[in-house]
């Protein structure tokens, strides 16, 4: 039960975006992929998800090479990407293939989980950004994926909503033992959520450091230990951004 990335490289029109990325996850681990803009975080996540298949190297799911989208994977994008013509509940049940009542029942359960009970019949245009992102989270969870891929899922949200949704992710993680791969450029978010951080650096992006966050949960956002980690990461990353 693990996700393994082996020597993954990806080239766009003769320009390398990522080079030789390798790491593996344990079941139920939360891994953060941290790096400055343009270092290939999204590229890596798209390769893992199978949305992009034109990469070299292997992605292994539970020990088998997997080069296509797989139902064991769920993806939460940076934008909610809801279907505007579907009601909230139909958006959540979009990926389900059950009978209608079952779909509605499941979708309703997950909407409840993200705190949107009562908004089932709304349409995306009636939702705030944070609500829409919560619907997207419910949509990704409803198929019970074993692995969740998140690409800067909260970066467009205000600080309060962001913290709430981070806690929501932790709740989900606790309840379902999901293995989570979280791309972010928010160091505090990464430190609050992750067991391990993979720091990407350079262009093409390569793994610069793997960092275990040795802090028991529940973590305090203001803890001194996390602040020390932050200091370390900042130092690490500043090497990559030349002062102009």
């Amino acid at each position: 039960m693990s996700l393994q990335v082996r020597n993954v490289s990806k080239e766009f029109e003769n320009r390398k975006a990522i080079e030789n990325i390798s790491f593996s996850t344990e079941r139920g681990e939360i891994i953060g992929i941290l790096g400055t803009s343009g270092c290939g975080k999204s590229t890596l996540l798209r390769a893992v998800s199978g949305l992009d298949t034109s990469y070299s190297g292997d992605v292994l799911l539970d020990g088998h090479v997997c080069k296509h989208v797989d139902e064991r994977l769920g993806f939460i994008f940076q934008q909610p990407r809801l279907m505007p013509w579907l009601s909230v509940i139909d958006n959540v049940s979009f990926g389900l293939n059950d009978r209608k009542e079952e779909k509605q029942e499941k979708a309703g359960r997950y909407l409840d989980l993200v705190g949107l009970k009562g908004n089932e019949r709304d349409f995306p245009k009636q939702l705030s950004g944070g609500m829409a992102q919560r619907v997207a989270i419910a949509r990704a969870l409803v198929t019970s994926p074993e692995y969740l891929l998140l690409d800067e899922p909260f970066s467009a949200l205000d600080a309060f909503t962001k913290m709430k949704l981070q806690d929501l992710v932790l709740e989900i993680w606790e309840a379902y033992e999901t293995t989570i791969l979280l791309v972010t450029h928010d160091i505090e978010e990464a430190l609050y959520l992750c067991d391990r951080l993979i720091i990407l650096k350079g262009q093409p992006g390569t793994i610069d450091e793997e960092l275990f966050i040795d802090e028991p949960r529940p973590r305090s956002r203001g803890s001194a230990k996390l602040a020390a980690y932050k200091e370390h990461i900042l130092n690490r990353l500043e090497l990559t951004t030349p002062v102009n």
């Binding site: 989208v69 994008f77 279907m83 013509w85």
Partner: peptide
């Protein structure tokens, strides 16, 4: 294209993509 990616993520076939995303979106 982003909506189509959502469909792909759920393993929709080309026909299902047309029916469930492309047609309603171009209505």
């Amino acid at each position: 294209r982003q909506l189509i990616e959502v469909g792909k993520m759920y393993g929709l076939s080309s026909f299902q993509l047309v029916k469930r995303i492309i047609l309603p979106a171009s209505l």
